[in-house]
Amino acid sequence: MTETAEPRIPPESEQAPSPDALLVRRTLAEIAPVADKVTGYFYALLFIHRPELRGLFPAAMDTQRDRLLKALLTAAEHMDDPDVLVPYLQNLGRGHRKYGTEAGHYPAVGEALIGALIRYATTTWNEETQAAWVRTYTKISQIMIDAAAEDEEHAPPWWHAEVVSHDLRTPDIAVVTLRPDQPYPFLAGQYTMLETPWWPRVWRHYSFASAPRPDGLLSLHVKAVPAGWVSSALVHRARPGDVLRLGPPAGSMTVDHSKDNGLLCLGGGTGIAPIKALVEDVAEHGDRRPVEVFYGARSDQDLYDIDTMMRLQKNFPWLSVRPVTEQQGRLPEAVRRYGPWAEYDAYLSGPLAMVRSSMDVLPGVGIPMDRIRHDFPTELAGRP
């Protein structure tokens, strides 16, 4: 299973949680200390009762781990936040089509979920709790099923995409350009889920490094990471002529062109890819709002796309690009020094530690949490 973006959960509403939500949260609190055991038991039940579903998952389940279960449990915990969860689940349902997921698979997942909870929620589980979980899972699965059915009417489950160029920028970073076999609609700032022929059923997320292009080509920045099967294959093995598979575009780190706030963009490492796409998007819409880009890397040599960013700065007077290396300090601290940023919306892309530390800093320099956008993939995403 692949990653997708964690739903952006707002602060708890002042409205009292529903009775079902209270029961669900009690169960979640009880099973939290034994989450690994719950996960193992869940998959065991699923594959014993529906062995044919094993083929929908990667051969090595350690690449999957608990993403499916965590996605379900996270959705269940926040079912009182429909404005957030419904779009998240709809996106999940559409994305699951690329695995061959069908509506008939969802009941089996639900049965395995309930079975695992019965086994490990020994203190809080009773008939009332089970009824609450059944109602909650029914809502979750139906949203996903309906979204998949609607998407099937106008979009394929996946796209084939040919590698047309492979530019090795550093020993472990490549810019890969793809030509999809049919139009691929996406927005600047979004990402795709990608499968290579070398690792079937192992999907990884990569952000687009440009706004939609007239020629339809797609550009990705890929860094090979230790034990990264897909990333290492894309950097060291992929060549022009190879054909990959793409899932549907996803992500909400996009620009609202009805607003005139400035954009404060933090890109760490290959996280500069979607930031570059956002800059192009602003330019194509003729906006003149200020865009401030902080481009972070360990050293000057790791600023592999700095020449491109500086050319963009030269062409657009409303754009400012500031490279920040570890020698100069942490990226969030550099942002703090140049603040305040009260008239800006923030866009974050890069390593998880950078995103988290930036989210700690930005409210203090004028950007509230509801104006901070990021689509960091997490292990909370999964598929039935």
Rank of each mutant, 00 (worst) to 15 (best):
H205T: 15
D260L: 09
L244D: 13
D215M: 03
K223V: 04
R204V: 08
V279C: 13
S231N: 09
G251E: 10
K276S: 10
V243P: 14
H285K: 14
G216P: 04
P249Y: 02
V282C: 12
G268M: 04
G267C: 13
R204F: 05
V243Q: 12
H221A: 13
I272R: 09
S219Q: 13
S219H: 05
L234K: 01
C265S: 14
I275M: 15
G228I: 09
L220E: 00
L220R: 00
G262S: 10
T192E: 03
V225S: 09
W199S: 14
L220H: 00
V235E: 11
P212V: 00
D242Y: 01
M193P: 02
T192M: 11
H236S: 12
G271W: 08
W199I: 06
M193D: 11
G267P: 07
G251T: 05
G228P: 12
V222P: 01
T192G: 10
G241R: 11
C265A: 15
V225F: 05
G228N: 11
P197D: 04
V225R: 06
H205N: 15
G267T: 06
W229K: 11
H236I: 08
V279I: 15
S210W: 00
G228K: 06
N261A: 15
S210R: 01
V282G: 05
V255M: 05
I272G: 14
D281N: 10
L218A: 02
G268F: 07
R245T: 12
H205C: 15
G268R: 07
P248F: 02
C265V: 11
S258Y: 07
T270C: 13
R239G: 09
E280Y: 00
K223T: 04
E195D: 05
T192V: 15
A209F: 00
G216M: 05
T196E: 11
S210A: 09
H205R: 10
L278Y: 04
C265Q: 10
W199V: 08
